[in-house]
């Protein structure tokens, strides 16, 4: 699965970008795509929160969603943590 993630905002205001490919099991992918089907409700009063721009492509399937600090689903947060860890290595 290909990904493009950029994390914008926060107290620092720095943008971080991550791009690459991850090998995930079918169940894991299904769970992530199921989560991404729900349009997140933005939290208007957050100041200095991160904005998570997540684009995932798996064959013909493509999801492009923006999350904020309080509506980021735990599955997607875990995925982003994994991507950040991969980038650090």
């Amino acid at each position: 699965m290909k990904y493009e993630v950029f994390i914008d905002g926060g107290f620092t205001g720095f943008r971080r970008s991550y791009q690459g490919e991850l090998l995930l099991g079918n169940n894991e992918k299904k769970e992530i795509f199921r989560t991404l089907k729900h349009k997140p409700k933005p939290s208007n009063d957050i100041r200095d929160g991160f904005q998570y721009h997540v684009k995932l492509v798996d064959g013909d399937i493509e999801y492009n969603t923006v999350f904020d600090e309080l509506n980021l689903p735990s599955q997607i947060r875990r995925l982003i943590d994994l991507i950040k860890l991969k980038a650090r290595k």
Binding site: F11, D45, R47, D48, G49, F50
Partner: peptide, 24 residues
């Protein structure tokens, strides 16, 4: 969070990360 490089106000309260220890 884990290695969370941020602090924010959410309309009600404040939240602080510990930083990743590398840059923050």
């Amino acid at each position: 969070g884990t290695d969370y490089n941020n602090a924010f106000w959410d309309g009600d309260e404040m939240t602080y990360g510990d930083g990743d220890g590398i840059e923050f």
